[in-house]
């Protein structure tokens, strides 16, 4: 390289040394580096439930991979019974179940697929 180019290199890198960290700092100074990450990775079941008498509480912890989730009662013989209602996303839902219900089915009502079967 000729002397001029060597000089140019020097000034360019002095520039990068001074200006770039300033911009890097300004870019990240208001960012929150501590924020917790919410993950959809779930255990076996994305829902949890609690039963007290005829009242069934379903807690959806992780969004269900479903186009429309209908909750059905499960009869003692294992067949699908009454529709209790829909689950619409994360949150808790309360349903009144008929006596003798053995469990519930959660179905994808548009794709007509069974998502989960929960026995009490």
């Amino acid at each position: 390289m000729i002397a001029g180019q060597r000089k140019a290199h020097k000034y360019i890198w002095i520039g990068i040394a001074v200006v770039l960290p300033l911009l890097m700092f300004l870019a990240i100074k208001d960012l929150d580096f501590t924020s917790a990450r919410t993950s959809d990775a779930s255990g076996e079941l994305p829902v949890s439930f609690s039963l007290s008498g005829q009242s069934l509480k379903i807690q959806v912890d992780t969004p269900l991979k479903s186009t429309a989730s209908l909750v059905y009662e499960m009869y003692t013989d294992g067949s699908r019974g009454n529709i209790l209602g829909q689950l619409e996303g994360r949150g808790s839902y309360e349903f009144l179940i008929s006596p003798g219900t053995k469990g519930i089915y959660i179905m994808d009502a548009i794709k007509k697929e069974e998502l989960f079967k929960i026995e009490f």
Binding site: R6, K7, H9, K10, W13, I16, A17, L20, P21
Partner: peptide, 17 residues
């Protein structure tokens, strides 16, 4: 990465100048 590059280039540049 920035720190490494800047150090290398400046050390070399001052040696050359």
């Amino acid at each position: 990465g920035w720190l490494t590059l800047v150090s290398l280039h400046l050390v070399a540049a001052f040696k050359e100048s």
